[in-house]
Design a protein around this nucleic acid. Structure first.
Lengths: 290, 290
DNA sequence: GATTATATGTGCGATTATGCACATAACGGG
DNA sequence: CCCGTTATGTGCATAATCGCACATATAATC
């Protein structure tokens, strides 16, 4: 495989999703980017991207390129830092992904990390969808539930997310907080994520135990769900720290604890890089001193 | 760091040691190579190579580039194989280094590996000098004695090399094989490596126990030493299997076994690559079934 | 010690890649 | 429904790169 520069171009296209954005990031004209992609595809004899009027979507093959090129990009950046006498300073982008529930806990840690490493840019992707580490979409993923069995993933335990069933004060005033003897499910209304495939145990509990007619509000967006709880539509699962910040009241329907073990997941190809090692250490240290 | 292609060029220069050889390997004119190096150095603001009339010698910085680029080259090759629908076939070069003593054992294994993976080229470097894995000079090193403490190296035990003190039949006819009671050191002549810094225990034994005047022949080249033993100049340490092939006779001066533990050493950056994993598995399997 | 082989450097014409202007196509909003 | 925005493509002039020929320097050889 010659043409490393073309691979680098393809990498940026895959990252941004459009030729134009990639061209701007690379500091070249967008026609150059198109021609690089065309040349690379011609050389390989296969399509790396699905041409779309709104941008370029990576094919399976294109995603493979993305992963390899991201590892290379990181190594090149690291190399440059070292060569420039800058010692082992970190630079470049770090992509982290997690569920929305833990974001208010993660963000301050990331802020401290940024302060310690001024040359890194942090991209924190909040999404319900599982990012595919094997395609280089993220350096570090914070995942809940059982970790996938992909042997290319390096998994280590992070901390336990403290979920709880919360509601607004107005809701509790009307429907009770469930603490009174035999707090029944039938007395309550629920707010739940609309995505039925989510593996999180508390959502599974709702789907299994709550009659559908009592799920009065659902959405695919976590922030919207919290807002629904705040508005008093029903009670729903919120992370404890976040619930306290928002002044929500806990509703205790069963003496069940909703701790969700979180894992830090990285792809093996990226796991050894100084950047990933640094952010992992930072995250784990921050979790220890809690 | 832009200019991945220039890094690739520098990589080949560092590998071959000359601009001309790199140019031929890359399929470009040597002036192009020179200009790539010049541009890269200008961009980084430091010298990657020491210009010499006989070639380019990598500086410390140049060696760093070599290591990173080798990891990248391997990943690119692997990527191309996968993309071309070739599944996970291995291709490209694998560099292995070891002492001369184990070569006759390693070579058949490498031959089988080659047969199983037709697209790989094997470069087997026999050298007394320790190759510096951290500079990407080799994928796998087979080392004797205590492994270095470099945290960037992944070390795993390989097998025990069976050394023995051997001599030619003509030598034994004249000086005895040492098996008779109280075979004395003073009755024998020795052949020994001229390099005094070698850590191998049998060489250390010679240096500590044999009076210098009885070391009648020394050389820095292992093959030459064996030849000297074959010629009956003296007795010297030879690997048992090799000694048998050559029809040498064992000389037993002390009831000491000269087993030398060997280790497989790889650099962390390369250790996870399919190529290195494949060759390591092959070597370890071959060692198990002995 | 002259010769040969093998290197590294450099000016110049040919080749190639790039940037620019412009064309085209889809989505979204008032 | 039309128009603005944001995309992808495509000639064409220009700029950058490359290959070639040639100059130069050094180690090895006879």
């Amino acid at each position: 495989m010659k043409h490393w520069d073309e691979v680098r171009t393809a990498y940026h296209v895959a990252r941004f999703g459009t030729v134009s954005a990639a061209a701007e990031a690379l500091g070249v004209h967008h026609s150059t980017v198109i021609r690089h992609i065309d040349a690379l595809e011609a050389h390989l004899g296969l399509k790396l991207f699905q041409r779309h009027a709104r941008g370029y979507t990576p094919t399976e093959a294109g995603s493979e390129v993305l992963r390899v090129a991201q590892a290379t990009e990181d190594q090149m950046n690291q190399l440059e830092s070292r060569l420039r006498g800058g010692g082992d300073e970190l630079k470049g982008e770090i992509v982290i992904t997690s569920l929305q529930e833990v974001s208010h806990f993660i963000t301050p840690i990331l802020a401290k990390f940024r302060a310690a490493h001024p040359d890194v840019q942090i991209r924190y992707m909040i999404t319900e969808r599982l990012f595919r580490l094997e395609f280089g979409e993220a350096h570090v993923a914070i995942r809940a539930g059982e970790a996938g069995q992909d042997p290319d993933n390096v998994i280590q335990p992070f901390f336990q997310m403290q979920m709880g069933l919360f509601a607004s004060q107005t809701y509790v005033d009307r429907y009770g907080d469930g603490i009174d003897p035999d707090g029944l499910l039938s007395d309550h209304l629920f707010v739940c994520n609309a995505d039925e495939a989510l593996p999180a145990p508390h959502y599974m509990w709702i789907r299994e135990n709550v009659p559908p007619e009592q799920i009065v509000f659902s959405s695919t967006d976590g922030q919207t769900l919290i807002q629904a709880v705040q508005e008093g539509i029903g009670c729903g699962f919120v992370e404890r720290g976040q619930a306290q910040d928002l002044g929500l009241v806990e509703v205790t329907l069963q003496n069940q604890d909703w701790r969700v073990p979180l894992s830090l997941v990285t792809h093996v190809d990226l796991h050894r890089t100084p950047k990933v090692q640094a952010i992992l250490k930072f995250l784990k240290d921050a979790c220890k001193q809690m």
